[in-house]
Design a protein around this nucleic acid. Structure first.
Length: 723
DNA sequence: TGCCCGGGCGCG
DNA sequence: AAAGCGCGCCCGGGCA
């Protein structure tokens, strides 16, 4: 058996005998199906051997090919029924037509907008695919309030809303959260998601990032022509001609005769992908897919809500950070100019001499590395914060004798922190603020391979804990923020998955695990620092953290670090078993799957084996913990709606294992919502996991700004005093 | 000039 | 060689 045959077999063990997979060097032919000879063309074996991304595509393509009839009509892009309407009367008639044709069926919908942002955006067109070959497109939908022959703007928008509300229709999208959010924000249309091909592909077929684009999937699964090439070319030409950057390009610069067919094909591709993915989907993923659909609808509302930015405070902070920055910069300059030599630097590193390199730039790791070499007299392998700490310690101990070193390292650390805050948060947040002073980040339900969410534009999940930054975000006037945090969610999941009696008992008795561990390791008289150490170990050790990393982190010897780890495992034998069990799985070709039916796929290579083993340990834990937050979010959202609290309390953001709501500043409502949310979060794991022996717990905090949160009691009391 | 990468660092 | 996991954003620097 040659390598390609082996690969086909590994990708799809029950590959049909009457079909063939053949290699070709011509990359334009890759993943093309030749129907007459029932052949799938793929890249040559040597490319699949080294290119993981290509191997990934190969696996998907072979699986799809195995389960498809190469003569199926989903591969036909020649005979499509494409209709369009842009005059008000035509639009009216077409909406009726769509409703009539769709009947009790599924409708695929896709929109085109001017850009991707919230502000300065416009809806350009809407497409509706009513079957696998038919798409209706609407554009130039009038919004100027004028009357037309027998049809007003209002009638059109009412008809559209009625269509989206039709209880007999199911709505399918590709990343519908984007479309539905924009329809609401730009046109005040309420649409919802019943099916989503992006989420289905993510959770049912391939969890890897960057594989869910509609264009890629269309080419890989549907033999679709690369119709976006034309679009890309227009984009680039337009930008060149008008001398603008690609980021400044807007889709209304594209002529409608090109944009509309493009959208129609997107709709049809989505429709065909849904049919195909339902056949290819891992059956165990059905449950989590349904939850993701619920979550897409809820996160659409979360994104629309956004969080209020305190612009006055932002400007104060900008001023004070700026002052701090120039102080730190001055201190740095004093030292740096004694060492910095652009010519010497350029000579020894090969870096180009530019205007900028006349002065030392602390943001450049390359320059910093060279500087440290000069100061210390020996090279350093890294210039990160941990290394700087270590070097500073060495200054204290007298290991480093250069008198400049201490000042230099300290000012680098100060300058770095200030720049990070200024560049990423102060400037970054202001840049994405909407005109109503709210920040509307995007939550990517398909953002990670473990099932966690990622967040972008801005990333709402990495706002510094530092008060002075966190206070940039606050509740609107008349509202308070209510933050609900799972207490040690991942460690509770580890207790559950391993079944370790000592961990379970700790949570059943509601004890402090970190203190327990500190006592196990250091004895009953452990110090505060030792508890912090225990905490770090608790979080790290379960993910395969080794003695070298522990010893580097705490400045203890390797032997001591090993001793700590051994003691930790001795008191938690079933955790040790769990870890050993998980580490063994990749060696035996066993899947890495989670309790709610998610799976991670790995190409197991020797060089990355240790890393992959750590992922086998970590993934089921991280995944289940984040799914509990997501499921709790859904339960909380439903409870708020079912109890008519939707306008008094809105979920505004989430951060992995915490949920933040913006609630009316009324202590009765706040207490009611907070306590109920805590209950929901404690109960959710037991609702979705059979025989879960570990109790879960959520803490709640309340406050007017995100950086200054207080206990619920304290808030309620403060309200009583105010009365 | 735009694009991609790696280093660094913010979060859980 | 280095070895805890998962992300996104900023910057510098090299490349086309």
């Amino acid at each position: 058996m040659d390598f390609l045959e082996k690969l086909v077999n590994a990708a799809c063990p029950d590959f049909p005998k009457d079909r063939e997979v053949r290699s070709t060097r011509d990359s334009f032919q890759w993943y093309k199906v030749i129907a007459s000879s029932r052949t799938l063309m793929v890249p040559p074996a040597n490319i699949l051997r080294v290119n993981m991304l290509e191997l990934d595509r190969f696996v998907e393509s072979v699986n799809a090919f195995a389960k498809c009839d190469p003569t199926e009509s989903i591969y036909d892009w020649e005979h499509l029924n494409l209709y369009e309407a842009h005059e008000p009367e035509e639009i009216c008639t077409m909406i009726d037509r769509i409703e009539e044709v769709a009947k009790n069926n599924l409708v695929v919908c896709d929109i085109e907008t001017r850009g991707l942002d919230w502000e300065d955006n416009i809806l350009l067109s809407i497409g509706f695919a009513t079957d696998e070959d038919t798409c209706y497109a609407l554009y130039n939908i009038p919004i100027d309030g004028s009357k037309h022959n027998g049809c007003t703007d209002k009638i059109i928008w009412d008809k559209l809303q009625r269509l989206f509300n039709n209880p007999n229709l199911k709505w399918c999208w590709h990343n519908g959260k984007f479309d539905c959010g924009k329809l609401k924000y730009l046109c005040n249309l309420d649409a919802h998601i019943d099916e989503d091909t992006m989420l289905l592909h993510y959770v049912g077929i391939n969890e890897k990032r960057g594989t869910h684009g509609l264009k890629d999937l269309g080419q890989l699964y549907l033999q679709a022509p690369a119709w976006d090439d034309q679009l890309d070319k227009i984009k680039k030409d337009y930008c060149k001609r008008h001398k603008i950057t690609l980021a400044e390009f807007h889709y209304d610069d594209i002529p409608t005769e090109i944009l509309i067919p493009y959208m129609q094909r997107d709709c049809i591709a989505t429709r065909r992908l849904l049919m195909l993915f339902r056949r290819l989907q891992r059956p165990e993923s059905q449950f989590i897919y349904r939850q993701l659909i619920r979550a897409a609808n809820v996160y659409e509302k979360v994104e629309l809500a956004g969080v209020q930015l305190d612009l006055d405070y932002l400007e104060d902070l900008e001023y004070s950070l700026d002052k701090e920055m120039s102080t730190a910069q001055k201190k740095l300059d004093q030292v740096a100019q004694q060492i910095w030599d652009p010519i010497l630097y350029s000579k020894s590193t090969g870096a180009k001499i530019t205007k900028n390199s006349e002065k030392f730039n602390p943001k450049s790791p390359k320059q910093l590395k060279w500087m440290l070499q000069e100061v210390l007299g020996h090279p350093v392998q890294s210039t990160d914060a941990l290394m700087m700490e270590t070097l500073l310690k060495q200054c204290d101990e007298g290991v480093i004798d250069n008198p400049l070193a201490r000042d230099f390292i300290q000012s680098i650390m100060a300058v770095r922190k200030n720049h990070k805050y200024m560049d990423t948060y102060v400037c970054g947040l202001r840049q994405v603020m909407c005109r109503d002073f709210r920040i509307r980040g995007t939550f990517n339900l398909h953002g990670t391979e473990t099932g966690r969410l990622s967040s972008s534009n801005p990333n709402m999940q990495n706002i510094p804990r530092d008060k002075k930054i966190k206070n940039l975000l606050r509740a609107a006037p008349g509202k308070v923020l209510v933050q609900l945090d799972y207490s040690q969610a991942e460690l509770r999941v580890l207790a559950m998955l391993s079944g370790d009696p000592s961990m379970i008992k700790c949570y059943v008795d509601d004890l402090d695990l970190h203190a327990q561990v500190a006592q196990d390791i250091f004895g009953p008289d452990f110090t505060k620092e030792q508890r912090v150490m225990a905490k770090t170990i608790n979080f790290g050790i379960a993910y395969g953290r080794g003695p070298s990393s522990i010893s580097a982190n705490f400045g203890v010897s390797m032997a001591e670090a090993r001793g700590i780890i051994n003691k930790w495992f001795r008191s938690k034998p079933l955790v040790k078993q769990y870890i050993d069990r998980q580490r063994a799985k990749p060696l035996r070709d066993e899947e890495c799957k989670t309790i709610l039916g998610r799976v991670r796929h790995f190409v197991i290579t020797d060089s990355e084996l240790n890393h992959i083993q750590n992922e086998y340990i970590n993934t089921p834990i991280q995944s289940a913990a984040s799914d509990m937050t997501m499921l709790s979010l859904l339960e909380i959202y439903d409870w708020l709606q079912d109890n008519g609290l939707g306008s008094q309390a809105q979920i505004v953001t989430t951060v992995h294992d915490s949920i933040i709501l913006e609630v009316d500043d009324d202590s009765e409502i706040v207490a009611k919502v907070a306590v109920k949310c805590q209950d929901i979060m404690a109960e959710t794991p037991h609702k979705f996991i059979d025989d879960c022996p570990v109790p879960f717990k959520a803490d709640v905090e309340v406050g007017y700004s995100w950086g200054n949160l207080m206990e619920l009691d304290e808030y309620v009391e403060s309200k009583e005093v105010a009365q």
